[in-house]
Design a protein around this nucleic acid. Structure first.
Length: 277
DNA sequence: ACTCGTGTTAGCTG
DNA sequence: TCAGCTAACACGAG
């Protein structure tokens, strides 16, 4: 589930874990906690406190008073749960009835607080990640806060060795959707959000990034921001206007033409056969 | 039984 | 050296 809007929700949940003494940590899931051997994260953080919860794109990290930071990534389906001293969930609103149950065996990381509450990462597929002192070098500017000028530059131009991810190098011949999905170009856009923004902007996902003109790029920017705001306000990217039509036999909710399906940038992609031809 | 997937990344290729 | 693609990761859902 998680793209930028869902991760922002998770970050707010994580704020309920701040300023509480850490009394124990279960970091024994070697896959989710890689490359740290079991006990390493616990050794670094037990006795300290989390002091702030940050997010850039889909990457979250907590500051602590131990000299370390704690990186939290939800992967494809991770969920953050924080409980109070009564064991009750805090933050994140009421449980959604349609949501999958959180089986205990999907709990991949547990931080126990001295007050009896916990912070846990649930992730059935184990594609999420908990990491000590993560580097943010490969993470581009947050999609929600990037300026239109920087957006145009980074989508249509590659980076250089010195410049990092994008915006200052050669024209990028790759598909515009692949640029949107590249977290070093722009952080936070996932597969569904990319399809939604491109559909709203009426741009073919496979169009070469460097062949979009300024008008196209500005329209894409505006529609990406609208898609993001709408997803944050409505509770997730799955609430996008075109998302429910991403299936065989689906039709464009604007013009009624058939939706087409293919692979762009290595990901399953749906677009309107008429408006995004 | 078999394929796919709302994400990331190591490793390969040109 | 670097942009860009693919497989791998793990496991439930269709």
């Amino acid at each position: 589930m998680p793209e930028l809007p869902e991760v922002e929700t998770a970050r707010k949940v994580l704020e309920n874990a701040l300023d509480r003494e850490i009394s124990a940590i279960d970091d024994t899931d070697h896959w989710v906690c890689r490359p740290h051997p079991p006990g390493e994260i616990a050794h670094a953080l037990v006795g300290g406190r989390l002091t702030a919860a940050h997010r850039r794109g889909k990457t979250m990290w907590c500051e602590t008073d131990t000299g370390h930071t704690l990186g939290v990534h939800l992967g494809m389906g991770g969920r953050v749960v924080v409980t109070n001293d009564q064991g009750e969930r805090v933050g994140g609103g009421p449980e959604r009835p349609d949501r999958q149950p959180r089986k205990p065996e999907w709990n991949r990381f547990t931080m126990v607080f001295a007050d009896g509450g916990e912070f846990r990462l649930f992730d059935k597929r184990r594609l999420g990640r908990i990491r000590l002192d993560p580097s943010l070098d490969g993470v581009g500017p947050d999609a929600e806060h990037i300026s239109p000028t920087e957006f145009r530059a980074r989508i249509s131009r590659t980076g250089t060795a010195a410049g990092g991810a994008g915006g200052v190098g050669r024209r990028s011949r790759t598909a515009v959707k692949a640029r949107l999905l590249d977290q070093s170009v722009l952080a936070g856009v996932g597969n569904l959000l990319a399809d939604e923004a491109l559909w709203r902007a009426k741009i073919n996902p496979a169009a070469r990034a460097d062949e979009l003109d300024r008008k196209d790029l500005d329209r894409l920017y505006r529609n990406l921001e609208k898609s993001l705001k709408s997803a944050i306000a409505n509770g997730g990217v799955h609430t996008g206007e075109v998302i429910e039509h991403r299936h065989p036999g689906g039709h464009c909710p604007r013009c009624g033409a058939e939706m087409r399906h293919g692979t762009v940038g290595g990901r399953s992609t749906w677009w309107c056969s008429r408006e995004q031809a």
